[in-house]
Amino acid sequence: MMWEGLAIGLFSLGIIGFGFFWVIRMEYHLGYLWWPYPLLFGVGIIVLSLLVADAGWSALLGVTGASFIWGATELKEQAVRADLGWFPRNPKPKPLPPFASVIRKIKAPHL
């Protein structure tokens, strides 16, 4: 029996669960304008998965990359949830992301 497939499925559950955690923390501490960075990180991990010889490790990297891309699309909605008072909002000033002026011109993606 192919237990590796089931292990990858369980891993996806864990990494998506971790995604909920880091999206909430990242929006709280940095703000939603940082969305391109987890997106690019996710794309980078998927590109890396192409270069790994073992199919199992490549699969785990692919799942991880996709979860970071999804997380990037979730940051904007998380900011709205914080605006609406459904989640705590950080009253401290947030650091500007690199290339903030360019990022502001792009509509943040969301699902």
């Binding site: 990858i8 996806s12 998506i16 998927i46 890396l48 998965s49 192409l50 270069l51 790994v52 010889a53 073992d54 199919a55 199992g56 490549s58 699969a59 785990l60 990297l61 692919g62 799942v63 990359g65 996709a66 979860s67 891309i69 999804w70």
Partner: peptide
């Protein structure tokens, strides 16, 4: 040769 397993899994996950 490129290992496409990760790409398929990334697509399935997303």
């Amino acid at each position: 040769m490129l290992q496409t397993s990760g790409l398929w899994l990334a697509l399935a996950t997303f």
